[in-house]
Design a protein around this nucleic acid. Structure first.
Lengths: 209, 209
DNA sequence: TGTCATTGTGGACAGTGTACACATTCCGAT
DNA sequence: ATCGGAATGTGTACACTGTCCACAATGACA
């Protein structure tokens, strides 16, 4: 094909371009839709060129997943930022917890493909704080959640002894609703039902944690 | 190839055989691992024979998913049955709710592939009561959950006004933990951590519902 | 200027889902 | 008993995927 259309034999930033293409594919289609050959096609490059930047399809997928987690973090951070200051620290902390959950769910609703790519691609909790997964604010979804939980304890809105492992509980609930309403049996719920379910769920978590 | 090894040109129960093969593939590998050609291979039949019984790969996958949901129901039902009668109806009802959740999570832990195939293949809540998804007891996972919630209300362990939509909340929490620990960022948790998280989660739900 | 690691190309292979035409078998009406 | 059509299975073919290998172009640095 010769490097026509690109001008030069070298691409410049093929890795980045492939990643962007991957994100776009994940956006509409989820993890299964990110296909290596298609990415190279969009980058105007031969299929094998990808292997100079990613060991295999899985490696590309992991990179896309990490980026998607960063975008989720943005959504969560925006939700936190929009919480009004009520003057009551305990109440504020609880509202932040709610916001984290609602931001997570908003991301699931608005970017279902990216959501699935972000959170249902095999990965370890050990990498939960990797900077590649951080949003613009520099923190990962996991760190944001941990942050508000810490805050909750600080202001005395949550007993110290319940803090340990609370991430898992809070995260699970919200993640479950997200998955079920995206590609589980809860698809087809009306926006109102989803809205209501989201609110009630975060309330339940805040109450039961 | 001629129908050697089968004896007859007709198979007898190809649909059932393909389904079984599909389940076996899903068991170790999840939804992505159920591949049409491999199923026909295991059935000793040509690839296209499958199309006489399933419209396409997706149709086979849906059938496998439904069967897997039935198996999940079995796990849940077993957990319910193992709840000892304490004499206190309210307490019993709560224990049943816990059992439903723990049975669901046990299934996720013991049959991760089938779990994913059961609950993360696109489907509508409208089909949640389809008999194809029932376990040996004749009820689907959704129906089992709804049952214990109804029971909870009957014995007065749950206020009537909170009943509506409670399935979603309970289900979400438990489902989320299941997904996160199978192929999400919570993989690699030790069995003890999983055990503890499961217990705490169902407690949280029971408390917060 | 020449050498060499980096990056991209071309061709190939096995494996997948699925369409189309054809073959075999079974069952029910004549 | 036979004949014809509906079910069911086979064969061939196509486009698409991930990935391997040998080769080519390029840029950086001695």
């Amino acid at each position: 094909m010769s490097a026509v259309g690109r001008g030069t034999y070298r691409h410049g930033d093929l890795r980045g371009t492939l990643l962007s293409a991957g994100i776009e594919m994940a956006r509409d289609g989820g993890p299964d839709a990110v296909v290596l050959r298609e990415a190279t096609r969009r980058a105007g490059v031969s299929p094998n060129a990808a292997y100079r930047h990613f060991a295999d399809r899985r490696a590309l997928l992991l990179a896309v997943s990490a980026t998607a987690q960063g975008l989720a973090a943005d959504s969560m951070e925006a939700a936190i930022a929009s919480v009004p200051d009520s003057g009551d620290p305990k109440n504020d902390a609880r509202q932040e917890l709610r916001a984290v959950g609602l931001g997570y769910l908003a991301f699931a609703r608005e970017e279902p493909g990216l959501f699935r790519t972000a959170f249902s691609v095999p990965d370890d909790l050990g990498n939960a704080e990797s900077p590649t997964k951080a949003g613009e604010g520099g923190r990962t979804p996991f760190q944001l959640l941990a942050g508000v939980l810490d805050h909750l304890v600080e202001v005395g809105a949550m007993p110290e002894e319940r803090r340990r492992g609370a991430e898992l509980l809070a995260w699970s609930s919200v993640h479950g609703l997200g998955m079920l309403m995206i590609d589980g049996p809860l698809r087809g719920l009306t926006p109102e039902m989803i809205e209501e379910a989201s609110e009630r769920l975060v309330d339940m978590v805040a109450r039961g944690l």
